[in-house]
């Protein structure tokens, strides 16, 4: 664990709890898939919790993030509510997007989450644009763009990093390097160094252990404050690991990733276990308190998913709503 910054117990517990909530959400979502209750597929964030939580804990609700196809963790970490999220995953009317987006498009505007994106790299412009708004309107807000190692192969990243650097925008490019894009190792798709690419634009770049929530949070708090002062943009590569397959249906994956490798990450570098151990060792919480948090979160997730399963689907009349703002039903308009 990195050196503890000036946190109080409440901050630590909030971060711990948020990581546990993400894990519980994903475990429950995986069960929904395995029991054929969830339409479509979904990409699990388990293993990467310290990235989303460490960064989002440094942000306010007015700071914006953009998320990815592997976005449940970002949504929870930015303040999302499990019930509303499960409703969205099941296509229910109470979902964040009234069931129109699903897992890959969850957006939670009330907490500054501008949305997950099913186009790899598709939200890099959006995050940069949110930072442009912050600069033009002098709001003091910051934008964080989450994306995977695979997304660094998209040209859009280099276009927007160039503009962000030219215009000194308050945006942080957070590259979650989990070692794989789909079924391909990062070494096979990324030449040279990812941080050096950002540095070529004059962007200050960092590498950090993405399994260490304190290290991530300490770096994020520093960069967010500096970005607010106009010292951005920044680039951060977070070394992390996804525990599940690329998506919930990716079960037999020996051909691209060994079971030994997966077991080793879980055994040695689990972000929740390690942070829990540290909290205990520092005397911040007791083992019993950690267990109690785990139990409470499990209940929360169980209630949330039960609610979502019982919730109503949107009525068919909503199918052509929300196509255009200011137009009730698009089919009667276009």
């Amino acid at each position: 664990m990195a050196e503890a910054p000036t946190h109080n117990t409440e901050d630590y517990l909030r971060m711990y709890r948020q990581m546990v909530r993400i894990r519980a959400f994903e475990d429950t979502a995986n069960q929904l898939y395995l029991s054929a209750k969830m339409p479509g597929l979904t990409h699990m964030y388990s293993g990467q919790e310290a990235v989303a939580v460490g960064i989002c804990a440094a942000l306010t609700d007015d700071d914006r993030i953009t998320s990815t196809h592997r976005g449940h963790g970002h949504c929870v970490a930015k303040g999302g509510d499990l019930k509303t999220m499960f409703c969205e995953l099941l296509g229910k009317a109470e979902g964040y997007c009234r069931g129109k987006g699903g897992s890959m498009h969850i957006a939670d505007q009330s907490h500054g989450n501008l949305g997950a994106n099913a186009i790899v790299g598709g939200s890099m412009g959006i995050a940069t644009g949110a930072a442009l708004t912050a600069k033009l309107r002098e709001t003091g807000h910051v934008a964080v763009c989450f994306f995977g190692d695979g997304a660094t192969a998209q040209g859009l990243l280099y276009e927007v990093m160039n503009m962000a650097a030219l215009w000194r925008l308050p945006v942080i490019y957070a590259c979650e390097n989990n070692g794989y894009s789909e079924y391909t190792r990062t070494e096979e798709i990324a030449a040279g160094s990812l941080t050096a690419r950002a540095e070529a634009f004059g962007i200050e770049a960092h590498r950090v252990d993405g399994q260490d929530v304190l290290a991530v949070n300490a770096l994020a708090r520093d960069l967010v404050e500096r970005a607010r002062r106009g010292e951005g943009p920044f680039f951060v590569e977070l070394e992390t690991y996804r525990y599940h397959g690329h998506h919930v249906g990716d079960i037999n994956r020996d051909y691209y990733r060994s079971k030994d490798e997966e077991a080793e990450w879980k055994r040695v570098r689990d972000p929740i276990v390690n942070f829990g151990t540290w909290l205990e060792a520092e005397g911040i919480v007791s083992a019993d308190e950690l267990v109690a948090i785990g139990e409470a979160v499990k209940d929360e997730a169980a209630q949330a998913v039960a609610h979502a399963e019982a919730a109503e689907y949107p009525p068919g009349s909503e199918v052509d709503m929300h196509v255009y703002k200011g137009v009730d039903h698009a089919l009667a308009y276009i």
């Binding site: 501008l114 890099m124 412009g125 644009g129 949110a130 442009l132 276009e159 927007v160 503009m163």
Partner: peptide
């Protein structure tokens, strides 16, 4: 693509 994307986010 970059500046259209930035406009979307803005």
């Amino acid at each position: 693509p970059g500046f259209v994307g930035i406009a979307v986010g803005a």
